[in-house]
Nucleic acid binder design. Structure first.
Lengths: 206, 206
DNA sequence: ATCTGTTTCCGAATTGAATCCGAACAAGCA
DNA sequence: TGCTTGTTCGGATTCAATTCGGAAACAGAT
C-alpha cells in the first residue's frame, strides 16, 4: 500500500488507475464508483489498486490532482497574452479557453467537474487559485492605473470565486438556463464597470 | 422502511433523526458519518432509522431539506424591506441577515454548509434559488429604471451564484483571507457599478 | 382494567463493498 | 540458470448499511 512505482511497468499501472478513475468519475461520480470498477476499467486486479494508493479516496485525490495540474498548465501560458488585453477581452479569452480545455477528451474533465466541483477535489484546487491570482496580479502590473481601485483583495476574491469558478460551475450544469457567452460577457462587464466606476469621477464609497 | 409517522411519538423520532444528522454532518461531514452514529446521537436504535428513511442518503437529504426550508423562511420575510433599499444596502442587509442565520444554533448550519455546499444538498437548493430570484424580480419591480439594464437574466445568475452563494461559501471557509464585511461591500459595489454604468449617467442607486 | 389490532422500536443477522494479504508471476542481475 | 526483488492477482477479512422478526408502547373498544 502506497508504494512508489520502481519499474516502468508499474508507472503505467498507476497511470492507468488514475485514467480509469477519471473515466469512472465522469460516468457516475465518485460516490457511485466502486474500487472494482476502477480496477476493471484500468484492466488490472482490485488488489493492485492498493499497491499504490492508500485507499479509494487517495485514488480520487490523485485524479483530482491530475485535473488541477492540467488546468494550471492550461492557464499559465495564457497569462502573458491576457495581461495585454482589456478586461472584457481578457475575461472572454480566459473563459473560452477554459471551456475548450474542459471539452477535450470526450468532456471527461467537464463531466468530472460536475461531480468534482462538489467533492473534496475542491480542497486541492488551491494551485488553480494561485494561477488565477497570479494572472490577476500580473494584470494589475500591466495596468497600474487599476491599483487605485479600493479593496483589491476582495475584488480578486470575487474575480476568482464569484466570476471564473461561477462560470465554470455553470458549464457543468445539466440544463443551463443561461448561455455561456452571455454569462462571460456580463462577468467581464461587472469587472470592467467596477474598475471604471471606481477610477472615474469621484469615489462614492470607500 | 419509508413509513409515514402516524403517532406523535414517531414524529418526534423523525425529528430527532434529522437533528442528529445535522449535528453529525456539522461535526464530521456526511461521508464520515455512519448510520450508527446518527442513531446514537438521536438516542434511538439503528433499525429505527430505516423505519422512516429509505437509506442513509435519504436522511441527509431530509437534513438538507430542513436547511433549505429554514433558509427560505429566513429570506422570504426580508423581501418587502429589501426592495425599498438601494442596491448596496439591500445586499448588505441580506448578507448580514444570512450570516446571523447561519450562526444560530451553535453554528450548526454554518458547519453543515462547509460540507454541504459540496454534497448533493446543493441539488435541493433550488428553493433558495427561487427565493433569491423572487427578491431580484421584486427589486426590479420597485426600481423600474433598472429594467433598462441589458442581460438581466445573466445578471440575476451572477447576483445569486457569483454573489450571494460566493459570500456564503466564503463564510464557511476555515481560514478566511478576506473579511466578510469587505466582500459584502465589494459585491454590492459590483452590482451597483454595473447598474450605474449600464444606465448611463443617471443615478440609479438613489 | 383488560383485550386487540396497530404503530413504533429495536439490535442481532445479512449483505456487499473496501481493504488486506500471501501465493504466483515477471524482471533484473550474477 | 538460480536468486532476489518488484508486481499482480483474487480470495479472505473487515466494517458499515440495511433487513427482519419479534417485543414494547399505544389507541380504542369493551
Amino acid at each position: 500500500m502506497a508504494r512508489k512505482p520502481k519499474q516502468q511497468r508499474s508507472k503505467a499501472t498507476v497511470d492507468a488507475i488514475v485514467e480509469a478513475a477519471l473515466i469512472a468519475i465522469a460516468r457516475q461520480g465518485p460516490s457511485a464508483t466502486t474500487a472494482r470498477q476502477v480496477a476493471d476499467i484500468a484492466g488490472i486486479g482490485v488488489g493492485s489498486l492498493y499497491e499504490y494508493f492508500e485507499d479509494k479516496d487517495a485514488i480520487f485525490n490523485a485524479a483530482g490532482a491530475r485535473f488541477v495540474d492540467d488546468t494550471v498548465a492550461m492557464i499559465k501560458p495564457l497569462i502573458p497574452e491576457l495581461v495585454r488585453m482589456n478586461i472584457r477581452d481578457a475575461v472572454s479569452k480566459l473563459l473560452f479557453t477554459f471551456r475548450d480545455f474542459l471539452e477535450e477528451n470526450n468532456q471527461i474533465y467537464l463531466k468530472c467537474a460536475r461531480h468534482a466541483f462538489s467533492q473534496d477535489m475542491v480542497m486541492h484546487q488551491e494551485p488553480i487559485n494561485r494561477a488565477l491570482m497570479d494572472l490577476f496580479t500580473q494584470y494589475l502590473m500591466h495596468h497600474p492605473e487599476l491599483l487605485r481601485m479600493p479593496n483589491i483583495p476582495a475584488v480578486a476574491y470575487f474575480y476568482i470565486n464569484g466570476g471564473i469558478f461561477t462560470v465554470i460551475r455553470h458549464l457543468s450544469e445539466e440544463k443551463p438556463t443561461q448561455s455561456f457567452e452571455e454569462l462571460t460577457m456580463v462577468f467581464g462587464d461587472f469587472l470592467a464597470s467596477y474598475a471604471e466606476h471606481k477610477l472615474g469621477a469621484s469615489n462614492a464609497t470607500q
